[in-house]
């Protein structure tokens, strides 16, 4: 079924009124394909100006998850037939046991780690490659980049971070880990030209076989101060049931966990209404798509997942 096209708008933003859950489309969970584990909580070595969960140094609003806690969550997810696990933060490599957690998890289920790429020591890279080689499950390393020029990226992420991230990408590539570079596109540039520009830059920087994933920007967290939040008009409120396509959204196939519980998706871990329960099996019901971010996902058809 085709989704009803919805307008994308841009202007300043008022706060959203309390949602009336019954008037929003209810997204069923078809199956738990992906479990997002916010392993490093909100702890990060950077404080990016567009971070949708406002992470930063010393930020423990969502605390680090222990190795045992992660093991229990993975076991819960495997019992539900999970296909793949995504580790995120914060910065996952701020977690002192990240490699041990991967060693626990990767033998049983494909894993992706979303990182800013600035914390790769030689030992970490060698261990990651060894873990990848030892498992038949894929290990994907995803590195965020916010521009193909240092000045663009550093404006979001801080002086010098572009060079450090590129260095991390080059070293991942040298270790054959084939990182996926995650970029955000907001302008109207032709997608092929946009892609080609990044690929050229990455190749010139020594990243052999660069892979790219393009995401839209979400008006959440620190990004709301940098640009704006969602407008009232950016909503799925009263979307006619006949127009709603329940296969379009990633929350039809995912949940996210932090030390604070189970959330509908990795985007809404800090948002009112995003928390669905304490255990995964409590969160298998439908979710009302009441948030502005739900609007972005629905309109763009985006997914945080690799594919």
């Amino acid at each position: 079924m085709a989704a009803t096209p919805l307008p994308l708008v841009g202007a300043p933003s008022p706060a959203r009124p309390e949602p009336d859950a019954g008037r929003y489309p209810a997204q069923p969970l078809h199956h738990l394909d992906a479990l997002w584990i916010q392993v490093a909580g909100t702890l990060c070595n950077l404080a990016c100006t567009h971070c949708f969960v406002s992470c930063g140094p010393g930020d423990l609003r969502h605390p680090l998850m222990s190795r045992g806690e992660v093991r229990d969550r993975v076991a819960e997810a495997l019992a539900l037939g999970v296909k793949e696990i995504y580790f995120t933060g914060g910065e996952p490599f701020m977690h002192p046991e990240m490699l041990e957690i991967l060693a626990d998890t990767l033998p049983r289920v494909p894993c992706a780690v979303l990182t800013n790429g600035t914390l790769f020591t030689q030992r970490r890279l060698e261990t990651l490659r060894a873990l990848s080689d030892a498992s038949r499950c894929a290990l994907e390393i995803r590195v965020s980049l916010d521009g193909y020029r240092a000045e663009d990226h550093d404006r979001f992420r801080g002086e010098g971070s572009f060079a450090r991230t590129l260095d991390g990408l080059r070293r991942l590539s040298d270790h054959g880990l084939l990182p996926i570079v995650t970029v955000t596109q907001n302008g109207d540039e032709d997608p092929l030209a946009f892609r080609a520009r990044y690929i050229t830059m990455l190749r010139e920087a020594g990243v052999a076989r660069p892979r790219l994933k393009v995401l839209p920007m979400f008006l959440l967290g620190r990004e709301t101060a940098r640009t704006r939040g969602y407008l009232e008009i950016e909503t799925l409120l009263d979307l006619p049931a006949a127009s709603f396509d329940p296969d379009r959204l990633q929350c039809g196939g995912c949940r996210a966990v932090t030390a604070k519980g189970v959330f509908v998706c990795p985007l809404l871990v800090d948002e009112p209404g995003g928390r669905m329960g304490g255990r995964l099996d409590e969160t298998l019901g439908p979710f009302p798509l009441a948030h502005g971010a739900c609007y972005t996902c629905y309109v763009t058809g985006m997914t945080c997942a690799n594919g």
């Binding site: 495997l78 037939g81 999970v82 494909p110 499950c137 894929a138």
Partner: peptide
């Protein structure tokens, strides 16, 4: 079995997922 254009790559599927797919 659930989607005509789903990619089932060997390295991207846990046993748990494939068991569920068969069972379901």
């Amino acid at each position: 079995p659930r989607r005509v254009n789903e990619f089932l790559w060997e390295s991207a599927c846990s046993d748990a997922f494939l068991e569920w797919l068969c069972e379901a």
